[in-house]
Nucleic acid binder design. Structure first.
Lengths: 224, 224
DNA sequence: CCTTATTTTGTACGTTTGTTCAATTTAAAA
DNA sequence: TTTTAAATTGAACAAACGTACAAAATAAGG
C-alpha cells in the first residue's frame, strides 16, 4: 500500500550495509532540513551537509528534491497509520467507542512515538502540517494520510448517524489542524499564555477540546 | 500602532495618483502570488508580471522581498483587528458574553469581509496561516496579530476564572487553527467528505465546534 | 511654465539553485 | 580471488533568484 508509488529501479545486488546507513542519514537530514525551512527554502546542499555526504549522494538516494520529500513523508506514514488503526482495534475490545476514545486513538500513537522515538518524529509533525496545508502535496496526502483518516471519519459517522459525512470530515480536519497547531506552534502559544505544562497534559486537554467540539457540531448537524 | 514598524523615507512631495495605484497593484499581486506559492517559492518576477509592472518597481514600492511580505500582511491586519474589537464591543451591549459569542465575534468579521471584499481576503487567509505556522514571522505575528488575540484570550479568562491563562491561550490557538483550516484546506475536506455547503453554514458549524471545545477544556482545567 | 522630486524603465551583477555526469572507490556475488 | 553492480566523489551546467543602478519619463510644487 505504501512502497509502490515510486519504485526503485531493478537491482541485481543487495545494497551494502553502508549504503543503507547513508540512505538513512540522507532521509534523516532531509527530514530535519525540510522541517526547519519548508520545502522551497530547504536546499539540497544543506541536506547534504547535514548528512555529511556529497550533494550528488542526496540525489542518488532520494531522487529529485520533490521525490525526496515524498520519501521522507512516506517513510513514517505507514508506521504511524498502522499504530492508529491498531489503537482503534484494541479500543473496541474495551467496550463501545466514544468520541473521546476515537480522538484519543488517533492522537495518542503519535504522542507515544514522539516521546520514545527521538527528534525525528517532532520534525515529522511539521512535515505533516506542510503537506496538509499546501495543495501542491494533494496526491501525497491522498496516498499517505487519507486512507487512515477515512477510517476515523467513518467511525465518527457510525457514532453520529444523523450527521453528514461532510460534517464529520470537517470536524476531523478541524481536530487534526488543532493537533498540528499544538505540535508546531508552541511559540505562538507562549506568546499569548504564560506558564508551561507537559506535552502529555496538553495532549489530554486537546483531546477534550476536540471531543467536545465534534460532539457539539455532529449532534447539531441536520444530516444533509 | 501599525504604520511605524517600517516607515517610508521622508518625502518632499505627495505621491501621484498613478503611483498610489501602482503601489496597490503591486501589493495585490504580491498578496496573490505569496498566497499561491508561499513566501520562498514566490518570485519577485512573478509578482511583477502579475501586477503588470517592471521588477524594479516591486522593489521600489515594497522594499526587499521580506519587507514586501510584511507590508502585504500588515495592510489588512489593522482593518480586520478593528472589526473584531468592534464586534466584541457591540456584542457587550446585548447582554453578558458567552463562549459562542466570543468565538463568533472573532470569526464573523473575516467572513463578512471575505464575502464582500473580493478575492484578496481569501488570499489573505492563506498568508495568515503562513505567518501563524512559521517561526520566521514571529515578530510580524507579535505586532499584527497578538494584541487582538490577547483581548479575546483575556475575555475567555474572564469567562472561566478557574481556567489558566495558558489553557485559554491554547484553546484560542486551536480555534484559530481550525478557522484557518476551514479557509485554506477545502481540498482536504472534499477528499474526505462528499457534499458541499455554503461558507456561512460551515462557519456556523465551526463556531459551534470551537465554542464547545473551549467550554469543555476550560471548564475541566484546574487553573494552575 | 519651470524646476526637480518621484516614478518608471531597462539592464546587469553576483549568488544560489536543482540537476547531471564521468571518474573513482567500495563491496556483493560468483 | 575475480568480476562488476552499486555507491561515492568532485566538478560542472544552465537557469532562476533577489537586488542594485543609471537613464528616461512623469507629475507635484512653486
Amino acid at each position: 500500500m505504501q512502497q509502490d508509488f515510486l519504485q526503485e529501479k531493478q537491482r541485481k545486488r543487495a545494497p551494502s550495509q553502508r549504503a543503507l546507513a547513508t540512505r538513512s542519514k540522507v532521509l534523516d537530514a532531509a527530514e530535519l532540513v525540510f522541517s526547519r525551512h519548508g520545502f522551497d527554502a530547504a536546499s539540497m546542499r544543506e541536506i547534504a551537509q547535514e548528512a555529511g555526504v556529497q550533494v550528488a549522494l542526496v540525489t542518488h538516494h532520494g531522487g529529485s528534491k520533490e521525490e525526496l520529500f515524498w520519501r521522507v513523508v512516506a517513510r513514517r506514514a505507514n508506521d504511524l497509520s498502522q499504530a492508529r488503526i491498531d489503537a482503534l482495534e484494541m479500543r473496541r475490545f474495551r467496550g463501545p467507542l466514544t468520541v473521546h476514545a476515537i480522538v484519543e486513538c488517533f492522537f495518542a500513537p503519535y504522542l507515544e512515538k514522539a516521546e520514545t522515538g527521538g527528534a525525528g518524529w517532532f520534525a515529522y509533525a511539521r512535515l505533516v502540517a506542510m503537506v496538509s496545508a499546501d495543495p501542491r502535496w494533494e496526491d501525497l496526502a491522498k496516498i499517505c494520510f487519507d486512507p487512515t483518516a477515512q477510517v476515523f471519519v467513518d467511525e465518527l459517522v457510525r457514532l453520529y448517524p444523523a450527521a453528514s459525512q461532510r460534517a464529520a470530515a470537517a470536524g476531523f480536519v478541524y481536530s487534526v489542524s488543532a493537533l498540528l497547531a499544538l505540535l508546531t506552534t508552541e511559540w505562538r502559544m507562549q506568546a499569548l499564555g504564560d506558564a508551561r505544562s507537559s506535552l502529555a497534559e496538553r495532549f489530554e486537554e486537546l483531546v477534550c477540546f476536540c471531543a467536545a467540539g465534534l460532539d457539539a457540531s455532529l449532534s447539531a448537524d441536520g444530516g444533509v
